[in-house]
């Protein structure tokens, strides 16, 4: 299912890329281009709280719209997570890697697709409860979600 989603997303994004390259715009108009699931229209004002815990220990707590992906949340709220979401949710970069608590991981409505697992396999510090933030859609249920953003470097290598 996610695969199909990604596919339908990639075309408008392409236009976005072209437009953006030209004008060199910012991420602020990103949201209007990404079509959100239409079933969420009725819920559009409902918000949940999510907290990103960064690898330097800093926490970023924010209000997020139900129906948004974690990537949308980072982009729309201008959260300062360096390099996050390089491919803009098209499942080709793994920079949106997050680690969840086991119980949160278990209660996500969708299991990761093969394509998501393929990308996760590239990430440093992969765990059994790792996911890609661009593939997690917020539901009401997930209010209070705490998300750990892992280190992007492999210290063993350096």
């Amino acid at each position: 299912m996610f695969r199909r989603l990604t596919k339908t997303f990639s075309r408008p994004k392409l236009c976005y890329l072209i437009k953006n390259n030209n004008l060199g715009g910012s991420f602020s108009n990103y949201r209007s281009i990404v079509p959100l699931s239409t079933t969420n229209l009725a819920l559009k004002d409902e918000k949940v709280t999510v907290t990103f815990v960064l690898n330097d220990g800093k926490s970023l707590e924010t209000q997020a719209k139900i129906g948004d992906t974690l990537l949308d949340v980072v982009v729309n709220n201008d959260l300062n997570i360096e390099g996050y979401g390089a491919c803009e949710g098209t499942l080709t970069c793994s920079t949106c890697h997050v680690i969840l608590k086991q119980e949160d991981y278990d209660r996500l409505p969708e299991e990761p697709s093969d394509e998501e697992r393929d990308m996760l396999d590239l990430a440093y510090g992969l765990t059994d409860t790792s996911r890609l933030g661009c593939q997690i859609t917020l539901t009401k249920d997930l209010d209070g979600l705490v998300i750990q953003v892992p280190e992007t470097i492999n210290d063993a290598r350096s």
Partner: peptide
């Protein structure tokens, strides 16, 4: 045939600006 990978150009453009 991997234009999605190149989306990162948008982040770089923001830096350059």
């Amino acid at each position: 045939d991997h234009p999605e990978v190149k989306n990162v150009i948008n982040q770089f453009t923001k830096v350059a600006k």
